[in-house]
Design a protein around this nucleic acid. Structure first.
Length: 605
DNA sequence: ATTATGTGTCATTTA
DNA sequence: TCTAAATGACACATA
């Protein structure tokens, strides 16, 4: 089950990595959207965020420092000044240890923190001073009371190990009561029991393959329940640090060496139980996540800073407006032709400068247009009115709304509210240098004038604007009011189709851009999340490493206190301490030795 | 001359 | 079935 968690966790990380790379791939073409500009904006924004973060962090640190100098008065609930802790261990406390220390000060008696356990052992068996036993605390001898029931003697006949002394036994029980320790023991014990044939008295009440940890006999059920609970944080820490690809033995060996332990003992000793494969692979896990860090300078695209586009600017070209504009500056400030939508979506903007190109074919490929181009009809008085809305011809046609002609001006304006936008800068720029700034717009104007010219040639009595933008019903009604020939009908249909499609293409491209922008934003979010998780992982790894150190020291202490019938101490290379599922502690001969002796035997303590 | 980009158009699919 | 919308692909103009 644990491995499943580890595995799924690894899978998650892989998945995140893949998705992340995909985002990067998507971002590879983000320069399409003015990459430099948005990158600068992004950098600025990031700088601001960093500053804000630093400021908050500073505030938190100050607050923490302040609280560190205070002590919570349990009666009043107030913080009162107190001298700073002197214990060296506390100066480097990790969050986990902080919680433990808090529990320690509470002294509820039911659960002991790891530090508490170490303290207990240090006071009871002042054999050797370890870094962990330096924690100062009040006396906890109550936990060592000799009234504690004796340990089970299930295998008393087994030589040569002997039972622990009651005090030692009690200390051992306290040690084993630690949830974290139990978690380690449970996992390793399961593996050990599968590999060996030690006579372990399994508890019938534990059908679950996940061995429940039962501290020896004396503990009540309630206690058992409490100690079985393993903190979720610890579980996460543990799972997250396990590397499936590295053999546990190697890891434990290296780890133990780092702890300056007895080499032989460390190589195959009990440390394997306490030291699952962890920690050492922490850096390798991070590398996988960090390898993409440098080359993914994400760009926060600022949608909100961009002007929101109105999808229907075209209807701003009401007859009146068109008339006025056409009179004043027809070639400069008109938004992009018939649709009008493209005006704002285009980064460069579009204003028609169609006058020069009005009459030319300009790369026409339409067969219908070929014929028309050869006989460009001069616009009659009727056309002067017809194409007033959007043709904006260079010959200064008098712009008169066709809508008035067909009697639907009110309807038009009602259905499509006027949302005309003209960029002031652009407008002025065009007035000053129309032929330099309008170059970009000539293309679309040429395209527009194509249909307009066609319509002129075929004497179609509608504006292109109307042909394109009228609703189906209105369009049909309009068509029914005029007798049009085949060519005219075909052209009107084409104009409508192209016009609609042009708008659709613009919207489509706009959506595409927005999608990319959204993905970039998501990418930033994921990067932040990744940084947070990495930081959390490092913290957990640090905690785990510290805990293993303490556990190892404690184990050595306890083991060193064991004596056989003759008062001799056991060699850590010959024996190890293990605990069965029912909580019984065994002094187990190591395999290579017992094989020589002709059997594996373990004796409960 | 080449390349990147923007735009319109067509064909096709989808709603 | 028809229509509009959506979209990929292409051509063209421009910087």
């Amino acid at each position: 089950m644990e491995m499943e968690v580890v595995h799924s966790s690894q899978q998650d990380m892989d998945l995140i990595d893949i998705l992340w790379k995909q985002d990067i791939d998507l971002g590879a073409r983000r320069e399409v959207f003015d990459y430099n500009h948005r990158q600068k904006e992004n950098e600025l924004q990031r700088q601001r965020e960093m500053e804000e973060e630093k400021r908050l962090h500073l505030l938190r640190e100050q607050e923490k420092a302040l609280l560190a100098q205070l002590q919570l008065d349990e009666e009043t609930g107030e913080y009162i000044p107190c001298p700073p802790p002197s214990a060296p261990l506390q100066s480097a406390v990790t969050p986990l240890e902080v919680t433990q220390n808090v529990r320690f000060t509470e002294e509820n008696g039911d659960s002991m923190s790891f530090d508490e356990c170490l303290q207990l052992l240090a006071e009871t068996f002042p054999v050797e001073e370890t870094e962990n036993t330096s924690v100062s605390s009040s006396s906890n001898n109550i936990m060592m009371s000799p009234e504690q029931p004796a340990l089970p003697s299930a295998s008393l006949s087994l030589p040569p190990p002997q039972r622990m002394s009651p005090d030692l036994e009690q200390a051992w029980m306290e040690l084993l009561s630690l949830p974290e320790l139990q978690q380690c023991l449970n996992m390793q014990m399961e593996e050990t029991l599968e590999k060996t044939t030690y006579p372990v008295s399994s508890s019938p009440e534990v059908p679950n393959p996940n061995f429940t940890f039962h501290p020896v006999t004396s503990l009540s059920d309630a206690e058992t329940n409490t100690v079985n609970v393993c903190p979720a944080e610890f579980m996460n820490t543990f799972d997250g640090s396990v590397n499936n690809t590295v053999p546990p033995d190697n890891l434990s060996q290296v780890d133990v060496k780092a702890s300056q332990l007895n080499a032989n003992f460390a190589a195959e000793g009990f440390c394997d139980i306490f030291y699952p494969n962890t920690i050492l692979e922490e850096s390798s896990g991070q590398q996988g996540l960090e390898e993409n860090e440098s080359d993914t300078t994400s760009v926060i695209s600022d949608i909100t800073n961009k002007p929101s586009f109105t999808t229907m600017d075209l209807y701003s070209l009401s007859p009146g407006d068109a008339f006025d504009r056409d009179k004043h500056n027809m070639t400069d400030e008109m938004p992009d032709s018939d649709s009008g939508i493209s005006t704002n979506t285009s980064p460069n903007g579009c204003s028609p400068g169609k006058s020069v190109y009005e009459d030319g074919p300009f790369g026409y490929s339409d067969s219908e247009m070929e014929e028309m181009d050869h006989n460009p009809g001069s616009p009659g008085s009727e056309y002067s009115e017809m194409f007033s809305l959007n043709f904006q011809p260079d010959d200064l046609q008098t712009a008169i709304s066709v809508s008035a002609l067909i009697g639907q001006p009110a309807q038009l304006q009602e259905k499509k509210p006027k949302q005309h936008k003209i960029d002031p800068a652009e407008e002025s720029g065009h007035k000053n240098a129309p032929f330099t700034k309008d170059k970009r717009k000539k293309f679309s104007d040429v395209r527009l004038s194509r249909d307009e010219a066609k319509a002129k040639s075929l004497k179609i009595p509608f504006t292109v604007d109307m042909i394109i933008n009228l609703p189906v019903d209105d369009f049909n009604e309009m068509m029914s009011k005029h007798q049009l020939n085949e060519a005219q009908l075909a052209l009107v249909r084409d104009i409508r189709r192209r016009g609609k499609n042009k708008v659709a293409a613009q919207n489509c491209r706009k959506r595409k851009m927005e999608n990319i922008v959204g993905l970039e934003s998501e990418l930033d979010t994921l990067k932040d999340e990744k940084e947070r998780l990495l930081s959390e992982k490092n913290q957990n790894t640090t905690n785990l490493r510290e805990m293993k150190k303490q556990l190892n020291s404690l184990y050595l202490e306890v083991f060193g206190m064991l004596r056989d019938e003759k008062g001799n101490s056991y060699s850590p290379s010959d024996y190890s301490l293990q605990q069965s599922t029912d909580g019984t502690i065994f002094l187990v001969p190591r395999i290579k030795k017992t094989l020589k002796r002709g059997g594996n035997r373990a004796s409960p303590l």
